[in-house]
Structure formats: C-alpha cells, structure tokens
C-alpha cells in the first residue's frame, strides 16, 4: 500500500526493463556490492529463457525502449546467449558483467548475435580503477587482471565495452583516473575506451566498507518540489527477478520494492523513501547507459 505522505514518483513511461538474470550469484565478492552478491548468495535465483519470455512479450505491448541484464554475474547463467539473442530481436540490450568469466567461445557467440541484430548489444564491464592497486582491494585479488583480459577479448572481437567504475577517489582526481585508465587500455589494444562512473550506494556490503546512510539522507516531499523526477530510474524502469517485478536494480532486497508479478501490475507510483533513493536523487539515473536525465521525459 502506498504511503500517501511519502515522497512519490510516477512511472512516466516504461522505457527500460531490467532482468536480474543471475540473481545474487557471483564469482566475485566485492566489498562494495549493494546487494552483497557472492558465490554462495542464493537469495535471488537465475532467470531462464522460459521465465523471461512472457516479460519480453509484455514489454513489446508496453513499447519498452531497451533491456538490461544484471546479477550477480550474468555470464554464469548458461542461457544468457539465447536470452540475449531473443531480446535483441526486439530491441537494444546491455549486459552488466565483471568481465572475469569470458571464454573464447562465449565472446564469439556474443559477436555472432550482436552482428545478427539491428539493435546494439552493449557490454558493461565493472572495473573499479585503472590498476590492481585500486581495484583489487574492492573486487578481490587478481580481479583486475582477469577483468582486463575479458575487456581485451571483447575488444579483439570488435566490441566497444563500457568500463564501469564505482568512484572511490576524490572528484578532483577523476580526469587523472580516466587518463590513466585510457592509457592502460590503449596499451592493451583497446584503442577506443568508453567509461561510466558510478557513485557508491551505501547499502549491502558498502554499508560495512564505509558507512550506511545517515538518517537525514532521505528524499522528502519538499525535495521533490520542482525536481525533475525523470532523472530517477523509477520513473522509467522496472526490474524482473525470480521473485517478481521490483522497482529498480538497487532495491531488490527491500520488500517494499516488489510491486507485482507482471510488468503491468507495477505501472504505478513508488514511494522513494528508501535510503538508497537519496543517491539516485543526487546523481540521477545512475544505472542506465546514458547517465544524465532526459528531462521532462513522458509518454
């Protein structure tokens, strides 16, 4: 039941559908993961093609614009290639991966389905800094080199992966980090690097690594007055999990975020009073490929 006194955001247009395709299972155990994914976390399970198909069909009726696949680590799902292939018949798809589980055959398969579609397949690889000294304390020993090998494989196959970094450095160092990372990628043959920088979300593991949200770090009704709510992902996205459809990828562990069993059932306002909503308020649609809002977006 929606709290009428809470700050609420309408769904303006369902533009993006996300799939929690690998649940909370991941081969890494990053210490900033906002849903604490790891090799033993089965809180959310995999989605197979049979579970995804009805949502794809529903998304077409609703005129959805793009699809995202996340986890956990999506490439641990053995059906990920046929899932992406079927999705790419309908629209553009983006996979969020840690880049450490690629094998040659998988990359070739991805290349095949990407070339066979009129729509773009984007691969976003999470690496949290330009060197192992920055990345590995967060994502695990050896994960920098493993992920960079994945990026090289993708680049050699013609992909232009988007390196996604959670910012753990001062704002004033951002240009230096980008220059350093760009040079490192070029040294390894990735000559056209693309980057996306994310803020930390102070839930899950991150609440322990640094701190959780303070009690005053909440969106209030007053804060939404005059605010362009199209900057918030909940005004244009929903996520499908093995436990139903939730508001956004960040809040799947919050019971209030689960809104129904079909997309249609979730086309209603959401109360953005969860602590992590505060970060989206400050930074905009952080999860989608284009970080900045298309202000005033509507149906």
């Amino acid at each position: 039941m929606l709290d009428l006194d809470a700050p609420c955001v309408d769904l303006r247009s369902l533009d993006e559908v996300w799939f929690q395709v690998a649940g909370t299972l991941c081969n890494l155990s990053c210490n900033h993961c906002f849903i604490s994914c790891n090799p033993g976390n089965h809180s959310f399970g995999f989605l197979d093609l049979a579970k995804i198909r009805p949502f794809l069909a529903e998304s077409v009726k609703l005129g959805v614009k793009e699809y995202y696949f996340t986890g956990g680590e999506p490439f641990l799902n053995r059906e990920i290639v046929p899932i992406l292939e079927e999705t790419l018949r309908l629209g553009p798809a983006t996979v969020l991966t840690n880049g450490t589980v690629f094998r040659g055959r998988l990359v070739n398969e991805l290349r095949r389905i990407a070339e066979g579609s009129q729509y773009s397949l984007e691969i976003r690889v999470s690496i949290d800094g330009p060197d192992k000294e920055t990345n590995d304390p967060i994502r695990g020993e050896g994960s920098f080199e493993d992920a960079m090998r994945g990026v090289q494989q993708l680049a050699q196959s013609g992909f232009l992966p988007i390196i996604t970094m959670v910012q753990t450095w001062a704002d004033s160092d951002t240009l230096k980090v980008l220059d350093q990372f760009g040079a490192e990628l070029k040294r390894r043959g990735c000559v056209r690097p693309r980057f996306k920088i994310l803020p930390t979300l102070r839930i899950g593991m991150e609440a322990t690594r640094t701190r959780g949200y303070l009690s005053e770090e909440r969106i209030t009704r007053e804060m939404l007055e005059g605010y362009d709510t199209s900057q918030l992902i909940c005004s244009h996205s929903r996520i499908v999990t093995d436990q139903g459809v939730a508001i956004c990828p960040i809040l799947i562990e919050s019971p209030v975020a689960h809104m129904g069993s079909t997309l249609e059932e979730t086309l209603r306002p959401f109360a953005v009073d969860q602590p992590a909503c505060y970060t989206c308020y400050l930074f905009g649609s952080i999860c989608t490929n284009t970080g900045a809002a298309l202000s005033g977006r509507d149906c």
Partner: peptide, 27 residues
C-alpha cells in the same frame, strides 16, 4: 527535434525498437 515526447531525446537506429516507435505514433 529529438522525439515527439522529448526535445533532447536521442533516437538512434540501433537503440530504437519498433515497439517503442509504435508507442510514439500512437501517443
């Protein structure tokens, strides 16, 4: 300019599905 619903919306060929276009025509 960008799209009928949003002046600064990018409608690229490879990220604009038929179903989304149909919604624009309808709306």
């Amino acid at each position: 300019h960008g799209s009928p619903r949003q002046r600064n919306e990018f409608l690229w060929e490879s990220t604009t599905p038929d179903a989304f276009l149909l919604k624009l025509f309808r709306n």
